[in-house]
């Protein structure tokens, strides 16, 4: 009996953790989009007030933003500084490929990040600002959607995990 009880508890715990993990995925998407928005805001500050060159601006952002968004900027900056003749777009996309798994975002958001590649360093100051502000706007929309999804799915995932575990235990017993 004691063995059955502990087995059942383990099954319920595992199912709950699975649900929790799913809900964390939604939370992480929200967090990543918030950090991306923050990184772009930092970039705009570097452009507006410091006219900081792109690689240095990226390194400065990488120092202040957590992984994986920070790593994305760091890897792109490192590639730019290696003098391999790569374009900003190529550096950004290579960094994006390297961090795709950790970023774990829906394709729609990944496309937005990919689009950033063709924007970096292009045009004069006002042109650069306009393009970044536009991407920020799209990211804000994506953040809104991610927040709604998170709120909707957060409790469902946790409860479904817990209830699923309990159902399985009932069946097994």
């Amino acid at each position: 009996m004691y063995l059955k009880m502990s087995g059942a508890a383990l099954i319920i715990l595992a199912a709950y953790l699975f649900g929790l993990n799913l809900s964390l995925m939604y939370y992480n998407r929200v967090r990543l989009l918030e950090e991306l928005l923050m990184a772009l805001e930092m970039f705009l500050t570097e452009v507006n007030y410091g006219l900081t060159p792109l690689p240095q601006a990226f390194l400065s952002i990488a120092k202040k933003i957590n992984r994986p968004v920070g790593s994305l900027f760091f890897d792109a900056a490192r590639l730019m500084q290696q003098n391999r003749g790569l374009s900003a777009c190529e550096c950004w996309r290579a960094a994006l490929r390297k961090n795709t798994r950790e970023l774990d975002m829906p394709q729609k958001n990944m496309d937005l990040l990919d689009r950033l590649g063709s924007i970096w360093g292009r045009g004069d100051k006002s042109g650069q600002q306009r393009q970044i502000v536009l991407i920020q706007e799209l990211l804000r929309q994506a953040l809104g959607e991610a927040q709604v999804e998170h709120q909707k799915n957060n409790k469902i995932c946790k409860y479904l995990g817990l209830l699923g575990g309990m159902t399985l235990v009932i069946f097994l017993l």
């Binding site: 006219l51 900081t52 060159p53 690689p55 730019m80 900003a88 550096c91 360093g121 045009g123 004069d124």
Partner: peptide, 8 residues
């Protein structure tokens, strides 16, 4: 240095 905005 990938930064036309800085060289205007």
């Amino acid at each position: 240095s990938y930064s036309l905005y800085a060289c205007e």
